[in-house]
Nucleic acid binder design. Structure first.
Length: 404
DNA sequence: TCTGGGGTCCTAGGACCC
DNA sequence: TCTGGGGTCCTAGGACCC
């Protein structure tokens, strides 16, 4: 088989860069990329964490994911800006459109990362030349910078794009693995998280090279299925194709940190209900039905509990999902202060492919849901509200994004 | 000191059956 | 006192990613 030609494109400080470009376009005089700044959540809502940081903020030791409160202690002239996911989606789509000029084999790995399979689209050009061209064009035409990783599989291309930032192109071909990747701490390897690092450390494994040179059997004995992947990745092995198919979701969830801990079961249920409405709405937008509901509660000490329950039948009905969620809440809730509530549906199936015998027979409810969905699509999610629920809607914000 | 929200996948243990 | 063994399915929790 001929060698594949893979690129990984990663937007540098995506949320912050996109916000900066958007602000400049709207007449803001300062480029927030050039000052100590972050994109952060809402501290009053107790979701105040750092989502993205400027290079100068980084120099102050500010890291993504830490509370904004900590970040401000590290830099008292830090400017913080809110996240606007509609803006992010806009620039993410612009970037995708640009990639379409090069190949139709694109995998949107996240809002700010794509894999491009150029194998059949090079037309005699060198992959590295295409990488540089994309890097330059994105900056010239869209106003933000990207890192481009160049290699023969997705894992190596992704590792390459993570080398020196910002606005860089790096290669990481098989023959370069030893030189460029093996000296890195093992924590840098994709899929090695903070729980696995100390376990590897205890085995004397500190670098990606240490892991790669270990006996595979040994690693698999210690880490199971995860071990297979870890050892392959450390050796630069990844056969997974660039998947350009937009897959239907396997689960749909909505969770919210409450502005204040709640202890009253009725109050908590109001939140659950609003979450159910949102989840079932999104389910219907995808033409999917679910067979299980999962309720998550986080208490004030950050302990999470979650229970799941099968629905009586495959459904996307708000009423049924809310009913089962209520049963879950009754069985789980012991009266402690609750910080976060989440509802998620699982085991999703295409509505068309489900045999009628497994369906509910509640045409009236279905019609009601569908009428309300129509209003939500036309006038925005929060336009449709149950009486007396306005305060809850303030907490559980609807996704305004329109589905196809 | 205060700690998001959206996902996917894996695993251990219990229930149940033969 | 000793109390199978294997398979499947389900659940809760946890690891990882961005």
């Amino acid at each position: 088989m001929e060698e594949r030609q893979i690129l990984h494109v990663d937007v540098n400080n995506a949320f912050l860069s996109w916000t900066a470009v958007h602000m400049l376009k709207n007449g803001h005089s300062i480029d927030i990329r050039t000052i100590p700044s972050i994109i952060g959540g809402d501290e009053e809502r107790r979701s105040g964490i750092v989502l993205a940081k400027s290079p100068i903020a980084k120099k102050f030791g500010i890291v993504t994911g830490e509370p904004i409160y900590f970040a401000r202690k590290k830099c008292n002239r830090l400017e913080t800006y809110p996240a606007n996911f509609e803006v992010f989606k806009f620039y993410s789509d612009k970037l995708y459109d640009l990639f379409l000029e090069y190949t139709d084999q694109i995998e949107r790995f996240s809002i700010d990362e794509c894999f491009l399979d150029m194998t059949k689209f090079l037309n005699g050009r060198k992959l590295i030349d295409v990488a540089y061209e994309i890097n330059e064009r994105v900056y010239k035409e869209l106003g933000f910078t990207v890192n481009v990783g160049v290699s023969s599989n997705k894992l190596l291309a992704k590792m390459a794009s993570d080398f020196e930032k910002p606005n860089k192109v790096h290669t990481l071909y098989e023959y370069e693995i030893e030189d460029k990747m093996w000296h890195l701490p093992v924590s840098e390897l994709f899929m090695i998280g903070k729980k696995t690092v100390p376990k590897l450390f205890n085995l004397g494994i500190k670098t990606i090279g240490d892991l790669a040179r270990q006996d595979k059997e040994f690693i698999v004995r210690k880490f199971g299925k995860m071990g297979v992947m870890m050892h392959d990745y450390a050796n630069g092995i990844d056969l997974s194709p660039v998947n350009n198919i937009i897959e239907k979701p396997k689960s749909i969830g909505n969770s919210v940190t409450l502005p204040k801990d709640l202890k009253d079961e009725e109050e908590i249920y109001k939140i659950v209900l609003a979450l159910c409405e949102q989840v079932s709405y999104r389910l219907r937008c995808h033409d999917l039905v679910a067979s299980t509901v999962n309720l998550q509660l986080r208490n004030k000490d950050f302990k999470d509990i979650s229970h799941q329950k099968p629905l009586s039948y495959l459904t996307s009905s708000t009423k049924e999902i809310a009913k089962t969620s209520k049963e879950l809440l009754k069985e789980m809730y012991k009266g402690e202060p609750i910080r976060l509530v989440g509802v998620r549906v699982d085991n999703l199936q295409e509505k068309d492919e489900v045999q009628m015998s497994f369906f509910e027979n509640d045409t009236k409810q279905e019609k009601l849901d569908s009428v309300l969905d129509g209003l939500k699509k036309k006038y925005g999610y929060s336009s449709v509200t149950r009486a007396g629920e306005l305060d809850v809607k303030e907490i559980v914000k609807g996704k305004e994004k329109k589905m196809k």
